[in-house]
Design a binder for these strands. Structure first.
Length: 586
RNA sequence: CGGGAUGUGGCGCAAUUUGGUAGCGCACCUGUUUUGGGUACAGGGGGUUGGAGGUUCAAAUCCUCUCAUCCCGACCA
């Protein structure tokens, strides 16, 4: 049966909703696909549900083809499994927690690693049962601090989450690639542009991890890519280490007075004024900035670390977070400085009077790490650890050393790609999928073990694979639209064909009715605008807003025995004989 | 959590500066009209102006508090 606009639960809006910012959000609301129920929580109307079901079906088919089996967990879960893995607390405020009448703790699941792990543990106990891949398509709940852009970042959203279970590391890699391949097929079928970027595994633990990002200016994730095809999250970019340089011609380090130079900019100005060189001017890149960070371990122990990096670069908070995980990272506070008088704020450097200050062998004992660009032989202007004094030509490998490397400086456009494939450019993307080799973290925490062929208990290794289904609907809407409305790819359109009956004669509606039936008999689904009292302009406007890519207009062409085929994407309209219309649509 | 903005019928807005008892467009209902680009006309229903307290003869408007939403940032598989 066709979807009839005369009875469809739909009210299109002429104006953009005031609370919507991005185009996909405005259009999905205006065209009657979704309604906001609460911040970051949306109701799906019939048209929206149809699109969501199309996306889900494609995901389902490719998951099944990849050998994964569908299950369905509750969204409402008890606390205990999440307590066992530490995530009841680790998830923090983002977790929706609630209590039943007996005051027992529950949560609305933000993700289901624990439950899948326990389910497999519940039923399986032999290596013969593995490998195994399971998945579900289900609502997830995260109490986001700031939901935004409609479906893009909601507090309730639909996710396909899959998990693989293997005995061996090689098995895990195979399962991982089966999912990764399925993802590529899914996004190709959906017509979604994507790039695969190397990602950091973050709080999920485990090792190998890749993100599928859909490039978009409204994306929340910044990634880098090179002309040679390298792509990665900024967190995952490894800085290219320059070769060591000779320093036999570099003059000995000299301390200069540098009053009122607490910042890099003021220091560079002073250097050019008082310590001018013949060959070129000093720049921020000649200075070594020593940033003091406070690390807090999971046990709550606080310690300081100093990181030296070229003065023209800032610390990237996300890269720092990754580099120092599982510790929390924050800038050192006044209190930290007060407790460590060896650190002369604004004038921090690795040596004072030729003796090491920073580093575990230094007088302060504070750990000292360097940006990878600070290689042996490079000379720097840096703090002298004396108020209002800096040292010039301090050479790494000659005058100072460090305890190690900290690759936490910001990545900039033009930086070389780690694999030598050219200069990096920065781009924005929306995360639409994520594949992880989790390893044994969850299996260990929840004691998922099977007997191997020798009758020995071995811990299972797992992978976790997510696709944001409702987010994909928003991504598709964002990428497929014009100023008139949505333009769905055929693969997810709420119907295959949209038939507009334009006219007032009953004969127009009778003919359209027959045509709709014929189209459906040919196996295509139809949305049929059968509203008799609505003017053609309104019908055309709604057709464009709703965005079914193929539209058939039944109206005044009937006098010549013709109907119009209207391509929503190109705007092209052409008249064809009524009898051949169905054949042309197929 | 920090910064900014906004809360007025279902939706989008005006009236707030200068207090006088709420108005416009869309949507909705009735009738006539129109039917290939959001027809036209007439009539109609619907709002205790986010909430609480205060000032005043009188509060959407002024004051205090509070709640909510949106945007930027922080945060975030």
């Amino acid at each position: 049966m066709p979807i009839r606009l005369s009875t469809l639960f739909l009210r299109t809006l002429r104006e953009d909703p005031a609370d919507a910012e991005v185009a996909s959000h405005k259009l999905l609301v205006r065209a009657g696909y979704i309604r906001r129920a609460a911040p970051g929580i949306y109701t799906w109307l019939p048209l929206g549900l149809a699109v969501k079901a199309k996306v889900e079906q494609i995901v389902r088919e490719e998951m099944n083809r990849a050998g994964a089996q569908e299950v369905f967990f509750p969204a409402l879960l008890p606390r205990e499994p999440y307590e066992a893995t530490g995530r009841w607390t680790e998830y923090g405020d983002n977790l929706f927690r609630l209590q039943d009448r007996k005051k027992a703790d529950y949560l609305l699941a933000p993700t289901h690693e624990e439950m899948f792990t326990l389910l497999v543990k519940d039923l399986y106990s032999s290596y013969k049962d593995l490998p195994l891949s399971l998945y579900q398509i289900q609502n997830k709940y995260r109490d986001e601090a700031r939901p935004r852009a409609g479906l893009l970042r909601g507090r309730e959203f639909v996710m396909k989450d899959a998990y693989s279970f293997d005995v061996t590391d090689e098995g895990l890699v195979a399962s991982y690639h089966a999912q990764r391949d399925a993802y590529e097929r899914i996004f190709r079928r959906l017509g979604v542009e994507y790039v695969i970027v190397k990602a950091d595994a973050g709080a999920m633990g485990g090792s190998a991890s890749e993100e599928f990002l859909s490039p978009s200016p409204i994306g929340e994730d910044t990634f880098v890519r090179s002309p040679g095809g390298y792509a990665a999250n900024v967190e995952a970019v490894k800085t290219v280490v320059p070769d060591a340089v000779p320093f036999d011609k570099t003059p000995a380090a000299v301390v200069h007075d540098s009053p009122n130079t607490p910042t890099i900019a003021t220091l560079v100005d002073l250097a050019n004024e008082k310590v001018a060189r013949a060959d070129r001017a000093w720049t921020a890149a000649d200075t070594l900035k020593n940033v003091v960070l406070a690390l807090t371990s999971p046990e709550g122990k606080r310690s300081l670390v100093v990181v030296g990096l070229p003065g023209d670069r800032e610390v990237d908070a996300k890269r720092a977070e990754v580099a120092f995980a599982p510790n929390d990272v924050e800038p050192a506070t006044e209190e930290d400085f007060a407790k460590n008088p060896a650190l002369v704020k604004g004038y921090i450097g690795p040596v004072k009077d030729g003796l090491a200050v920073l580093g575990e062998k230094g007088s302060s004992g504070i750990r000292y790490l360097l940006d990878p660009r600070v290689v042996d032989g490079t000379a720097w202007i840096t703090g002298a650890n004396i108020h209002e004094k800096h040292v010039f030509d301090l050479v790494k490998g000659r005058d100072f050393e460090a305890d190690g490397v900290a690759d936490i400086a910001e990545v900039r456009a033009g930086d070389p790609a780690p694999d030598g494939s050219g200069p990096l450019e920065l781009a924005r993307g929306i995360e639409i999928g994520h594949v992880f080799q989790l390893g044994r973290k969850y299996a260990e925490a929840l004691d998922l073990k099977v007997l191997d062929e020798n009758g020995k208990l071995v811990t299972v290794t797992m992978g976790s694979y997510g696709i944001g289904v409702t987010r994909l609907v928003a991504v598709l809407a964002e990428a497929n639209r014009d100023d008139k409305g949505l333009i769905w790819p055929q693969s997810v359109s709420p119907a295959d064909v949209y038939v507009v009956a334009a006219g007032k004669d009953d004969s127009v509606y009778q003919t359209a009715e027959k045509l709709v039936a014929d189209i459906e008999a040919a196996g295509l689904s139809v949305i049929y605008d059968d509203r008799q009292k609505v003017s053609p302009g309104v019908k055309f406007g709604d057709a464009e807003l709703v965005g079914v890519p193929r539209i058939v207009i039944v109206g005044k062409g009937l006098e010549q025995g013709e109907v119009d085929l209207w391509d929503r994407r190109t705007g092209e309209r052409r008249s064809v004989p009524l009898e051949s219309a169905v054949a042309q649509l197929r």
